[in-house]
C-alpha cells in the first residue's frame, strides 16, 4: 500500500477564533495538514502559538470555528458531545503534562479506567492493566495512590492508562513538561517504543527540541499557522 494514502488525520482549513469580551483572538488561522498512520507527529512551537488548541481540536475536546477534521475518515467536527465522548473512548489515548490521574483511585484502578468506560469485563481489564503496569515498570506500585508516587511514576501510570485499551491514536500534551531530564528520556523512549510496536499514531505537543527529535513528522507552529513541516527521519533514511 502506498504510505501516502494511509492518512489517519486529515485537517482542512482549520480556524479557531476566540471572542474575549469585544476582542477577537485568532488562535488558529487556517491549518491544513495530514498525519499518516503509525507516525509520531510533533506539534512544535512556543507557548501561545496555538499548538495546544490544535491538539484539543484534533482530540475532539474543542469545537473548531470553521474547517474540517477527519480522523480515520470520521468527521469529528460534525459530532455532538455524546458522539465525541464515544469516539474518544474507542479511538484515543491521552497523556497529560500534569498526569491527571484520579487521586482517589490506585494505580491499577486508574489504568483500568478507560476499560471500565468501555464496559470491559472485570477480570479481563484487571489482567490487562496489571500487564501494562508491569511493562512501564510499576508492578510493585499497583496498589499505590497517585499521591504516594513520584512524578515520573505518575506519568508512567498515565502512559499505561493511555495505551491499555489499544487506541489507534495517542495524544500527548507536553508529556514531560513536569519531569527531569533523565525521566524525560525514559518516558519518551517508553512511549515511542510502544507506538512503534503497536503501529499506532501519536501526536505530541511540545516546545522542547529534544522531544521533537523523537518525531517522524514535525510541524512547527507559530501564531496559529504552520511555519514549517518536516520529516527528518525520512530525510536521514533517504540520505543514508
Amino acid at each position: 500500500m502506498n504510505a501516502k494514502d494511509d492518512i489517519i488525520i486529515d485537517v482542512k482549513n482549520l480556524r479557531k477564533v476566540y471572542t474575549i469580551g469585544t476582542e477577537r483572538v485568532i488562535a488558529l488561522a487556517g491549518i491544513d495538514m495530514k498525519i499518516r498512520r503509525g507516525e509520531i507527529c510533533c506539534l512544535f512551537g512556543p507557548s501561545g502559538s496555538g499548538k495546544s488548541t490544535l491538539l484539543n481540536m484534533l482530540a475532539g475536546l474543542e469545537k473548531p470555528t470553521t474547517g474540517e477534521i477527519a480522523i480515520g475518515g470520521a468527521r469529528i467536527d460534525k459530532m455532538n458531545e455524546t458522539q465525541l465522548a464515544d469516539f474518544r473512548r474507542n479511538h484515543f489515548g491521552f497523556v497529560f503534562q500534569s498526569y491527571n490521574l484520579l487521586p482517589a483511585l490506585t494505580a491499577l484502578e486508574n489504568v483500568e479506567m478507560p476499560m471500565i468506560f468501555r464496559g470491559v469485563d472485570k477480570n479481563i481489564r484487571k489482567k490487562q492493566a496489571v500487564k501494562m503496569l508491569q511493562y512501564v515498570g510499576l508492578k510493585d506500585r499497583i496498589k499505590h495512590k497517585p499521591t504516594q508516587m513520584s512524578g515520573g511514576q505518575q506519568q508512567r501510570v498515565g502512559i499505561a492508562r493511555a495505551f491499555v485499551a489499544h487506541p489507534p491514536v495517542i495524544f500527548a500534551d507536553e508529556p514531560t513538561g513536569n519531569l527531569d531530564t533523565h525521566t524525560t528520556y525514559e518516558v519518551m523512549d517508553m512511549m515511542s517504543a510502544m507506538v512503534k510496536k503497536r503501529g499506532s499514531t501519536m501526536i505530541i505537543v511540545t516546545h522542547d527540541n529534544e522531544i521533537a527529535a523523537y518525531g517522524d513528522h514535525i510541524i512547527k507552529i507559530r501564531d496559529g499557522k504552520i511555519l514549517e513541516e518536516s520529516w527528518p527521519k525520512q530525510q536521514i533514511a533517504a540520505a543514508e
Partner: peptide, 16 residues
C-alpha cells in the same frame, strides 16, 4: 471538577 473532566476526556459517557 478536575476528576469529572478527566473522566470526560477519557470518553466516559455523560449518562454514566
Amino acid at each position: 471538577t478536575r476528576e469529572i473532566g478527566i473522566m470526560k476526556v477519557l470518553g466516559c459517557k455523560l449518562s454514566n
